[in-house]
């Protein structure tokens, strides 16, 4: 992408294309962890997101359709997930229910290995991916920060690769920036940094490493001031993206003066000799 003439990022100069849609925001907000729907709605609006994840759970008349209606009211696209599934079988059933309920073939595929780490189970994840792609889903695969697995998922036909920066809800940031960068540089589909973001600089770093977007939830919904953190994340993702496109300077082992050496006064030059 030729970026030399871009001075402002918008949907025209820098569209985010994913699974056949074009979005202007590269921040995807999860809805988990918010203390109330009012807080969630404020955070969603402050974040400027157009896409947000939801879980699929038992219907209860008491909470009937609250989240779904909230998203529809704010024109935010719902990306259902398979959170809580430990096997390909459960994830596939959940994905099919999500497609029926929300009338979308997009699914954020999560197949978790264990409750302690909440890290993906690579074998179950890959098996579920193959089946769901065959069933016509656009699979957004939540995966480990493993470039080899990311490649296998891409080969299986995912719409997006979503590597974890750190365990879900940990706020530890990006534990292996090199792997995230490797995944982003090799991928032919969008790479969305998912999980582990703790604060704005983590989101900016993800974009600087070459990710196409960032998905986060707890960092905003569990922040002391959720809407303010949502705004910070919006700015961080934009700043990180702009820095990536602008092209950072190479790292050097020694200093490189930015002021010219020519024209120095003789007496001062003499002081250094």
């Amino acid at each position: 992408m030729e970026t030399r003439n871009i001075t402002e990022l918008d949907i025209h100069s820098d569209p985010f294309q994913i699974a056949g849609r074009t979005l202007s925001s590269r921040l995807i907000l999860g809805t988990g962890g918010a203390s109330s729907l009012t807080t969630l709605e404020s955070a969603l609006r402050a974040s400027g997101t157009e896409l947000t994840t939801v879980a699929i759970r038992h219907f209860s008349a008491a909470g009937a359709g609250n989240v779904y209606e909230l998203l529809q009211r704010n024109n935010v696209i719902a990306l259902p997930n398979t959170a809580g599934c430990f096997t390909a079988r459960d994830a596939i059933l959940t994905a099919h229910l999500a497609r029926e309920a929300l009338e979308t073939n997009w699914i954020k595929l999560e197949v978790i290995a264990d409750e302690h780490t909440l890290l993906p189970d690579p074998l179950e994840l890959h098996a579920a991916t193959e089946q769901l792609v065959a069933d016509g889903f656009q699979v957004f695969a939540y995966t480990n920060d493993d470039p080899a697995l990311a490649q296998r998922l891409q080969d299986a036909g995912v719409a997006a690769i979503m590597p974890a920066g750190a365990p879900i809800g940990s706020g530890l940031g990006i534990l292996n920036p090199h792997n995230i960068s490797t995944i982003a540089s090799r991928a032919q589909v969008p790479v969305i940094l998912d999980a582990g973001v703790g604060t704005a600089s983590d989101a900016a770093l993800a974009m600087e490493l070459g990710c196409d977007a960032v998905l986060l939830a707890s960092a905003v919904t569990r922040a002391h001031n959720a809407p303010l953190m949502a705004r910070a994340m919006k700015d961080a993702v934009r700043a990180g993206r702009a820095a990536r496109l602008a092209g950072r300077i190479p790292r050097r082992d020694t200093a490189l003066a930015s002021s010219p050496a020519e024209g120095m006064m003789q007496t001062l030059v003499g002081d250094f000799s």
Binding site: A34, V54, A55, I56, Y68, A78
Partner: peptide, 10 residues
């Protein structure tokens, strides 16, 4: 019978 809907999560 299981009846499901969208809930906060993810």
């Amino acid at each position: 019978i299981e009846l499901v809907t969208a809930a906060q999560g993810g």
